[in-house]
Amino acid sequence: MKAIIIFVCLFTNRVTSQSADVFPGKIFSSHKNISEGSEIIFKCSPHGSGKSSTSLYLYLCKDGQGIQRKRQKQDQTDIIFTVNSVKLYDSGNYSCVYSPKGYEPSNIFKSGSNTFAILVKAAFLPAQISMVGSSTVTEGDIFELQCTVDANMVQKHTECTHIRSYLMRNNTVVRMEAFSIKDTKATFAIQDATLRDSGQYSCVVFPSRCVREEDAKFRGNNTLTVHVEENVSYWGVVGMGLLSTLMILFFFLFIIVKQRQIFTGKYRFHQK
Rank of each mutant, 00 (worst) to 15 (best):
C61P: 04
I6C: 05
L60S: 01
N221C: 06
N114H: 08
S35N: 10
G265A: 15
K73L: 06
Q155Y: 10
V137W: 07
S106N: 14
I67Y: 02
T194F: 08
I248E: 05
I34L: 03
E229D: 02
V149M: 07
S85P: 01
E39M: 08
S113M: 07
I118H: 04
V83H: 04
A151T: 13
K258S: 13
V22E: 04
V86C: 00
N222Y: 04
R175I: 08
G92I: 00
L167E: 00
L249G: 14
S29G: 02
I67N: 01
L224E: 13
K266L: 15
T245E: 12
L58M: 09
R260T: 12
C44L: 13
P126M: 03
Q65K: 15
R260I: 10
G133D: 10
I5L: 11
N152G: 07
R169Y: 00
F23D: 05
E230I: 13
I79R: 15
L242D: 06
K185I: 15
V257Q: 10
S55Y: 12
D192T: 14
N84I: 14
V228T: 05
F206A: 02
H162S: 04
R71Y: 10
C160Y: 10
N84A: 15
S55A: 09
K26C: 07
T54P: 01
F252G: 10
M1F: 05
G140E: 01
Q155G: 09
I4K: 13
S52D: 00
N222I: 09
I80D: 14
S30W: 13
V97H: 03
E104M: 09
T245I: 08
E229C: 00
C210F: 06
V154S: 08
G50L: 01
I108M: 05
M176D: 03
R169A: 04
I181M: 13
C160I: 08
V154Y: 03
E230Y: 10
N114M: 06
S95C: 01
I67D: 00
S244F: 11
C9M: 14
F23R: 09
G239H: 04
E104N: 08
P126I: 01
C160M: 11
A127G: 11
V15H: 03
N13D: 11
V154L: 06
D183H: 15
Q72F: 03
A20R: 10
F7T: 10
Y57L: 09
V22M: 03
S208A: 09
S198H: 00
I80K: 05
G265L: 15
V137H: 01
E177I: 11
I262L: 12
F254E: 01
S49P: 02
F23T: 08
G140V: 13
C203M: 03
A20H: 05
N152W: 11
S198A: 04
D75H: 12
F143N: 01
K51N: 12
A186C: 07
K2G: 08
K121P: 04
Q155H: 15
V15K: 03
T161C: 10
M1I: 15
